[in-house]
């Protein structure tokens, strides 16, 4: 009899095999295909009551600080290699990312940008938002934004930055400034992929805004994509 976890692993292995065959032809380098899953039961998160600007923002907001799929996959977790290989053949991350503010929510909630990259923050709502962040390494910003205006902010130092809105307390956004290309964001099923990795032994790190950071060692082969499951403990 298959346990749900085994079924998941089997399913993802078949998926990895199928995609792995295609990538194996394109590049000689190895890759990691994995899933970030929650260990334990997901905490009950209350909906966030909206008390102001209900006409634009709605009456309440889904709590998005931890979104788990029915199979346990964690969405919007960031996975990266702790010590990247010296001669990396990976394609660079796009230097410009876009974040929209729509119905008083940052879309996407978590965005990865390389050092020296920029993010275009757009306000699509018919009201004022106020981008506000006080990072450690990068310069702080506190900018009022009318409807339709885009504010571009550059990030030069790697770190994880929380972005808020002074006017809408429930708004949360995260900017992960990456100092190398081996960064990946999990999708709705908790899946991610890191490509262009030379074979070798690596330490994988994973961060989630609520669950914090964990790490795991993996060995990456030449040909086959390495399948890995990263477990994060519920807390």
């Amino acid at each position: 009899m298959l346990t749900p976890l085994r079924a998941l692993l089997l399913g993802s292995t078949i998926l990895l095999l199928a995609t792995g065959l295609t990538t194996a032809r394109e590049s000689s380098a190895g890759s990691i295909k994995g899933t970030v899953v929650l260990k334990g039961t997901a905490p009950e998160l209350k909906k966030l009551a909206v008390t102001i600007d209900q006409y634009v923002c709605g009456k309440e907001k889904n709590p998005e600080e931890l979104v788990v799929s029915p199979q346990g996959g964690i969405r919007s977790a960031v996975v990266w290699i702790e010590k990247p290989p010296a001669a990396a053949a990976a394609e660079a991350l796009p230097s410009t990312a876009a974040v929209d503010q729509r119905e008083c929510t940052f879309l996407p909630r978590v965005v990865i940008v390389p050092t020296g990259g920029k993010i275009d923050f757009l306000n699509s709502d018919r009201l004022l938002h106020n981008l506000h962040a006080t990072p450690n390494a990068n310069p702080p910003f506190n900018r009022t934004q009318p409807k339709g205006r885009t504010i571009t902010i550059s990030f030069s130092h790697p770190e994880i930055i929380r972005v808020t809105c002074d006017l809408h307390s429930w708004m949360r956004g995260w900017v992960v400034v990456a100092d190398h290309p081996f960064y990946a964001l999990t999708d709705g099923a908790g899946a991610f992929e890191l490509r262009g990795l030379p074979a070798g032994r690596y330490t994988l790190k994973v961060w989630q805004e609520r669950l914090g950071t964990t790490s795991k060692d993996v060995v990456v082969g030449d040909q086959e994509p390495t399948a890995v499951t990263l477990e994060m403990a519920a807390r």
């Binding site: 102001i52 634009v56 006017l167």
Partner: peptide, 12 residues
């Protein structure tokens, strides 16, 4: 913040 708050109230 007070100005902004009033402006949003106006919008709403």
């Amino acid at each position: 913040s007070l100005i902004l708050r009033e402006n949003n109230r106006f919008n709403d």
